[in-house]
Design a protein around this nucleic acid. Structure first.
Length: 110
DNA sequence: AAGCTGACTATGG
DNA sequence: GCCATAGCCAGCT
């Protein structure tokens, strides 16, 4: 498996409960800024990962649950997020800025 | 082997 | 402010 995927999974697993981040933020943290698609692709391949990857905590830059349809059930993502205390308006995360978790900042990585 | 697709993001009109 | 286009790169057909 590529290191890229391992790093994505590692970062995603580091996302605290009740927090969310964006594909772009993860991509930036890894160093593949601009390749946010690859992060999403890694999520799609997360089913090949031996450990659970909280992909439901990863949303797009708008705080929209774009990847919900890739879960077992379309509402699984929403249910998981609400279960962690995140309020949602349909597929849109409310107070997204407040729940936003930037690995480049929170992990104080340089 | 070559081309298309995709869980994104930024920029331009 | 919303719609269209371009850049990104690895996996799948």
């Amino acid at each position: 498996m590529s290191d890229f995927f391992s790093r994505v999974y590692e970062v995603v697993k580091l996302i605290p409960p009740g927090r969310v981040t964006s594909y772009g933020a993860i991509a930036k943290y890894i160093g593949t800024t601009g390749s946010a698609r690859m992060v999403g692709w890694a999520m799609n391949a997360s089913h090949s990962h031996p450990e659970f990857v909280p992909a439901h905590r990863v949303v797009n830059r708008n705080g929209l649950l774009t990847g919900k349809h890739h879960f077992d059930t379309p509402r699984a993502m929403k249910e998981l997020l609400e279960n962690e205390g995140i309020k949602l308006k349909g597929d849109q995360i409310l107070n997204f800025n407040k729940h936003f978790w930037d690995p480049s900042v929170e992990l104080e990585m340089e």
